Amino acid sequence: MEETMIPKLLAALGALLLATAPHTAAAFPDRPIRLVVPYGPGGITDIAARILAPRLGEELGQQVIVDNRPGGAAMLGFGLAARAEPDGHTLVLATTALAANPVLFRNIPYDARRDFTPVSLVGVVPMVLVVPPSSPARSVQDVIAMLRARPGEVNYGSAGNGSGNHLATEMFNHAAGGLRAVHVPYRGGGQVMTDLMAGRVSYVFAVLPTARPFIAGGQLRALATTGAARSPAAPETPTVAEAALPGFELYEWLGLLGPAGLPPAVTAKLQAGVAAALRHPETAQRFRDIGVEARGSDGAALRAHLERELTRWADLATHVRFEVAE
């Protein structure tokens, strides 16, 4: 073969390899992105996803489609995202459940540490301790006193075993000295709020955006929020830390993750898109309006946050007896 032919053959081979190779990270995204929400429509995770998705789509140049996949204490949606192709076109908006489920369920179809690529924290949502208007409790100290006076008799409501209400209340009861109360789990947040307003349960730690309309309407009394500082959405309400338990801090959180093995260039592009979306004045205001504190981050920060959350709930499980499901 003539030496002059070799460069031409190499060039042709290179062009063929480029033509037949998979799309590279530089081409990402080349089709719509699916954002899995592991809950049904209407909850805070779904609402936040639908605020974020259009703006993130504009930043990335492709439509971001919210895909609600409720079921199995969010494990159905998490499992779907973990098994997806790691090309950035399937993401999941994760919540506290990703970190708490290992202490509540024996058989989980994914590993929270190994099966995901953390992309970015999206926001945190403080919770609020609420009681019915008929309750004699008018402060956090009153609730603690009530529980101490009637150990194992006072009840609290939640949206179900393993829900944020359930976990937050057990965290509070433990922090207040190992107080005992009766857990009344419901099949969703709507019924627990209805029964709380009617006085059939004594107290609930509710997600602030869910409780705000009832607080504003006088149907519930807010005693404290769970953030490190007072929430801009309820500046008149003290925190649990300032009212009774110094150092107490608890948020529901929202974080964007992809399947394990997401290419670093794709992860970086997604991070930049989330950061730009959260900086946009309209998106930031809409998050504030629903009580979500927008907090972008890089993947390392989200991984560290997830690790702290996994440790937090595993530690609580050594002090609190949770009903573990299959």
Rank of each mutant, 00 (worst) to 15 (best):
R50A: 09
L316Q: 11
L16Q: 10
T210M: 15
I215G: 05
D142V: 07
V125W: 06
E282D: 15
G42N: 01
S231C: 07
A198R: 15
Q285M: 08
R34T: 14
N155Y: 10
D46R: 01
Q63K: 15
I44R: 00
T169Y: 09
T239E: 09
G258S: 01
D142F: 12
L250K: 04
A275R: 10
V128Q: 11
P54Q: 04
M197D: 05
P185M: 12
G189E: 05
A137R: 01
Q141G: 15
L256Y: 02
A314Y: 07
N101L: 06
Y186Q: 03
A228L: 14
V182F: 13
L196M: 09
G88K: 01
I33F: 00
A325P: 02
L18A: 14
G40I: 02
A159F: 08
M193Q: 08
N161I: 14
G40K: 01
P109G: 09
A294N: 03
V122G: 02
G72Q: 02
E252F: 12
G273P: 05
T226Y: 10
A314K: 13
A277K: 07
V320F: 11
V66T: 12
N173I: 09
F116R: 04
A317K: 13
T4L: 11
T194Y: 12
M1G: 14
A228Y: 09
A175Q: 14
A260P: 00
F116M: 04
S135G: 10
Y203I: 03
P238V: 00
I6D: 04
G177W: 08
F214G: 05
T117C: 01
G123P: 03
M193T: 05
T318I: 13
D315M: 07
V36I: 15
R312P: 04
S134P: 04
A325T: 11
L167P: 05
L254D: 00
M146T: 10
Q271Y: 01
T210H: 09
A74P: 00
I65R: 14
T95I: 04
L17F: 12
T226N: 12
P213E: 08
P132K: 10
G157S: 10
H319V: 13
P38D: 00
A211W: 03
E153G: 03
N155P: 00
A241E: 10
T311W: 11
D115Q: 02
N155L: 12
T267H: 00
S297D: 08
R221H: 10
